[in-house]
Amino acid sequence: MTLVLSSGNSCQVCGSERLRELVSFRELPRVTSDARPWPAGGRLACCEECGAAQKIVDDAWRAEIAQIYRNYELYHQSQGDEQPIFSGQSTGPQPRSALIIDYLDGALTLREDARVLDFGCGTGSALKTFSGRHPRWRLYGAEIRDDARERLVQLPNFVELYTCDLDAIDARFDLVTLIHSLEHLISPVDTLIELRRLIGDDGRVFVQVPDCAITPFDFVIVDHLTHFTVESLRRLGERAGYETVAAHDALLPKELSWIGKAVASRDRPAATPHKGMDEIRAQVDWLNAQVRNSRELARSSANFGIFGTSISGTWLAGAVDEEVDFFVDEDPRRIGREHMGRPVIAPDNVAENSDVFVPLIPKVAAAVKSRLARQGVRYHAPAEIVR
């Protein structure tokens, strides 16, 4: 595995110019965050000072991002509805935004008519949930396009959708949420600094991002620039001038949640020990092994399928390509449709003498395999990550 010092880029988290590229990542097929396969050729680096993983921002990456966002369609497999989350609670799968509002109601005390901005509001799923829970909140959204405007204006307490630069917004908010948007941003520190002006001294910022320490699949998402651990998320927030009110991985599986409060001044966070490159190398090796193993399994199988039609399933299908015969999914909104030109079927409808690969983190994949395997249908889970 070759490591190459990257020049002309600084760390998105700490600002250091000591970025080192993991060249073997270039071999991996990729996927977009709206679940579309993407070819190999990405560049992934690790900061030698703080250990944060991130893409290298060059002309090729910028061109890819522009292409992705021209045709971006979030949750297109479920007609724009957000994906249900299996949180481990007895209530079963719930929308992500419902779990978030439960958490925010317990963690923050906002006035009944609070002004709330969802930065990167997407199709408006979170704002819809906020509206139902708090009908007196005044709700605002921010996005790069106005595709969701028609949906948003149906909310009785929705006020405005911003599609302008942050410095053109002349308003104050009690809460700004960034739900799976910070990882997409070039210069996330600068964005958080700009948001301080919009929340004043009493407002709060809530951020939710994927936890790359738990899910290596985050690395192969083309339009995810920065890959966070709880330590790097806290460090980035504090570098932007916030006091960390909360930072943890307990709200949702494979995701990190952070609440920040703006402070007048803040010393640059001290460097802390980290595994850095060794950890990222192990995860990239694990992803490459999944591609090799699934290709071998597909070639030897009479009927080969992949479990899931979201990020990881689409990524692996793009890597295996023509060898995939079908997808297996448990979401009733996706069953009976097609994904990547292949049928999406329920677990009970998988034909005998079939092999199904489960591209999820090992613990979750093993649970799926144990739960769904039956006579004549073989489910295959990836090996543990060797760290």
Rank of each mutant, 00 (worst) to 15 (best):
M1Y: 07
V4P: 10
V4D: 08
V4M: 00
S7M: 03
G8W: 05
E27N: 05
D34F: 12
R36Y: 12
A40Q: 08
G42K: 00
C46P: 03
C47P: 00
E48D: 15
G51C: 05
G51M: 00
Q54T: 10
A60H: 00
A63E: 02
A66E: 15
A66D: 15
A66C: 13
N71E: 05
Y75T: 13
Q77T: 14
E82I: 00
I85Y: 09
F86T: 15
T91G: 13
P95W: 00
P95Q: 02
P95N: 06
I100N: 03
I100E: 09
I101N: 09
A107E: 07
L108C: 00
R111N: 12
A114W: 10
A114N: 06
R115K: 12
V116C: 10
L117C: 07
G124Y: 10
K128F: 09
T129S: 14
F130Y: 07
R133C: 10
D146A: 15
R151D: 09
R151A: 14
Q154D: 04
L155H: 06
F158Q: 15
F158E: 15
V159T: 03
D165Y: 05
F173Q: 08
D174A: 05
D174S: 07
T177H: 09
S181F: 01
E194L: 15
R197A: 12
R197P: 02
D201I: 05
D201F: 02
R204T: 12
P216E: 08
I221D: 03
D223Y: 09
H224T: 10
V230E: 15
Y242K: 10
L251Y: 05
K254T: 07
S257T: 15
I259C: 04
V263L: 04
P269L: 08
P273I: 01
H274R: 08
K275L: 10
R281I: 02
R281Q: 11
V284Y: 05
A289E: 14
S294Q: 10
E296R: 11
A298N: 01
T314Y: 09
A319W: 04
E323Q: 15
E323D: 15
F326Y: 04
V328F: 00
R333K: 03
I335A: 01
G336W: 03
P347A: 12
V350W: 04
A351H: 09
E352T: 02
S354E: 00
V356P: 13
F357L: 06
V364S: 07
V368H: 08
L372M: 14
A383V: 14
E384V: 13
